[in-house]
Amino acid sequence: MKVSPWILLAGLLALAFTLATKLAATADNWSGRSKPENVFEMLLGDGRRLFANESFTMADVYFHSGYYPSMFDQNAKEQREIIAASHGHKETEEEEKKEDFFGQPHDWIDAFGRNFRITRHTHLAAHQEREILPWLRLAADLDPQKIETYTVGAYFMREHLGRPNEAEAFLREGLRHNPGNSEILFELGRIYRENRHDLNRARNVWEYGVKSYLSLSPDLQKENKLVYEELVMNLARLEDEAGNYAAAIKWFEKGKVVSPAPDAIQKQIDDIEKKLAGAKPVAAPK
């Protein structure tokens, strides 16, 4: 029997497609792995996390417009956490700008080579900070569990670029990957408080942050003491601003326990107590 090769081809294609529809569902069950979220996860698997730090560092390189120590430069190790350490703290930023990781040239090769390197320590400003965002986006895709990516990205979008909506969306993405993370909740609360002036939502988010922190193991609590301090101090100031002096004192008292400057906090408590003595009580928040 002579069969046309075209008919044979059509038959084989039909068979392949039919089997594909049947096997696709079965193959999903065979694989114990979850479906990849993005192309990096698909291509690199968990190995993508190795590149996330580099991507985060690239954001820092961009923030310093290329003035950045290489892994061979002296004091490189100390210098490489600049963006994470100094963002948002004007004094630290100014101090950092004075540091010079290049030092004196070692020889004529080093001295001449500096003509072709960026040797001016600057920080991005005037909305140019947007240039760091692609690297933070990439870092988040590469390692969704890297918390600083979300907090740093949200900080720049909120504080420097006037884009609180995008900052909130980025933080919420971070929360999806890291449910209940206190640092992300703290940044989220700042958006509600500072940009939206929505004290109730800020309070809710920060209180949830405190609750999450307290549910951590003692070791992790020790590690994250700073964010706890930030949360309680900001909650205290928020309540003070809202006129909920009793609640404010409660949060200040908690802050006093962990703060390195309890006397200063005690002074604030004293001030509120004075206000409380002289003012009519306000209904406590729900």
Partner: peptide, 27 residues
């Protein structure tokens, strides 16, 4: 040969203007 001197990508990417012309001539 120090080829790394000839990489002026950072000057272009970060809008740092031109490298010193004298140094370019020497290079």
């Amino acid at each position: 040969p120090h080829l790394e001197w000839y990489d002026l990508r950072d000057f272009v990417v970060y809008d740092m203007g031109m490298a010193p012309v004298g140094a370019v001539a020497l290079a």
